[in-house]
Amino acid sequence: MTNMQDDAFWDTPVQEPLAPRAGRRSRGNRAATKVERVETRGRARALQALYAADLRDLTQLRKIATHVFDDLAVDPEERQFASRLVATVADKCAELDADLAQVTNNWRLERLGAIERSVLRLAAAELDRNETPVKVVLQEAVHLAERYGTTRSARFVNGVLDAYARKLGRL
């Protein structure tokens, strides 16, 4: 004996997926057509160098960054921006780490993942340079943490950097 309800379900036509509304793009389309700014790409390159140095030897950050940028054939404008951030971290790493340690409640920097630690150092260096609006630095850092880490990484980075910017009196 067959169930008529089941047969009716399988015999109905398949509904086509809904099309996006006219004039609005879905997230996927916007991401595919969006061109990233030089600074955004430069931050990603600086993060790659910081991450590599964190895994190898942070005291060799400048040398490692040069190798990373050469290996990736980084665009000169991106390289210039990334190099300034890397230089700030190289020159002030101990100071930046000490300041970040004051706002990471119950977490020592050594216990953080390399991505989170690198993103925090990068953002702290950019805040130290005081050339970019604070909200932009925080937004870009959260984006990097989410892109190269996880959603939890992004939330953690956001909380730490918010506290850090407040400590600096910038928020």
Rank of each mutant, 00 (worst) to 15 (best):
5 Q>P: 00
7 D>I: 07
7 D>A: 07
8 A>R: 08
9 F>Y: 09
9 F>V: 02
9 F>K: 05
13 P>D: 15
13 P>N: 14
13 P>W: 15
14 V>Y: 14
14 V>L: 15
15 Q>W: 08
16 E>Q: 15
16 E>I: 11
18 L>K: 09
21 R>F: 09
22 A>S: 14
22 A>F: 15
23 G>D: 00
23 G>Y: 04
23 G>H: 05
25 R>P: 10
25 R>C: 12
26 S>W: 02
26 S>Q: 13
27 R>D: 14
27 R>G: 15
28 G>A: 15
28 G>P: 01
29 N>I: 13
32 A>W: 13
34 K>M: 07
38 V>E: 13
38 V>L: 08
39 E>H: 06
40 T>F: 13
42 G>W: 06
42 G>I: 03
42 G>L: 04
42 G>D: 03
43 R>K: 13
45 R>I: 06
45 R>K: 12
49 A>T: 05
49 A>P: 07
51 Y>F: 08
52 A>F: 01
52 A>M: 05
55 L>S: 10
55 L>Y: 14
55 L>I: 04
56 R>Y: 09
56 R>M: 09
56 R>N: 13
56 R>S: 12
57 D>I: 03
57 D>C: 11
57 D>K: 03
58 L>S: 13
58 L>R: 15
58 L>C: 05
60 Q>I: 07
61 L>K: 02
64 I>H: 01
65 A>N: 00
67 H>M: 13
71 D>I: 00
73 A>T: 10
73 A>C: 13
73 A>I: 11
75 D>W: 04
77 E>S: 12
77 E>N: 10
80 Q>G: 11
82 A>Q: 03
83 S>K: 08
83 S>R: 09
84 R>V: 14
85 L>F: 11
87 A>Q: 08
89 V>I: 04
89 V>M: 07
93 C>F: 12
96 L>H: 00
98 A>F: 00
99 D>T: 02
103 V>F: 06
104 T>A: 03
105 N>V: 14
112 L>S: 06
112 L>G: 02
113 G>V: 00
114 A>F: 15
114 A>W: 13
115 I>D: 05
116 E>H: 05
117 R>E: 08
118 S>Q: 09
119 V>Q: 02
120 L>W: 09
121 R>E: 09
124 A>D: 04
124 A>M: 01
126 E>Y: 02
126 E>C: 01
127 L>S: 04
129 R>T: 05
130 N>C: 07
133 P>N: 07
134 V>D: 04
136 V>K: 03
138 L>V: 14
138 L>C: 11
140 E>P: 10
141 A>I: 02
142 V>M: 09
142 V>E: 14
144 L>T: 02
146 E>I: 12
147 R>F: 06
148 Y>P: 02
151 T>P: 05
152 R>C: 00
153 S>H: 03
154 A>E: 01
155 R>E: 09
156 F>E: 05
157 V>E: 00
157 V>D: 00
157 V>Q: 04
159 G>Q: 10
160 V>K: 06
160 V>T: 06
160 V>I: 08
166 R>P: 11
166 R>C: 12
166 R>E: 12
167 K>F: 12
170 R>F: 10
171 L>A: 10
